[in-house]
């Protein structure tokens, strides 16, 4: 399954833009493994994953219509 992923901050710098599509994944653990292969600098980054705008705390099954976002530590204000 292809999942489109939104990226922000430092992660958008690494992946080269605000969004990307990751193929052949079914859950967020697989997503992270793919990201580490495609973008090795991601291995050493701390980030959260939001699925449909909610930050997930454990491996989460993904559906095609889900909105997935990779969120580096927030630094607003």
């Amino acid at each position: 399954m292809d999942i489109s992923v939104l990226t922000f901050g430092q992660i958008a710098d690494i992946t080269g833009g605000g969004s990307l599509t990751i193929s052949n994944i079914n859950d967020t653990d697989e997503l992270m493994r793919q990201l580490n292969v495609l973008f090795p600098p991601m291995q050493s980054l701390r980030y959260s994953i939001a699925v449909n705008q909610k930050i997930i705390r454990e491996n989460t099954t993904l559906k095609k219509a889900d909105t997935v976002a990779l969120l580096p530590p927030f630094s607003g204000g």
Partner: peptide, 13 residues
Amino acid sequence: VERIKKEVPVWGK
């Protein structure tokens, strides 16, 4: 202010 800084997905470059 504390919650905004901690919880809102905003990034500063």
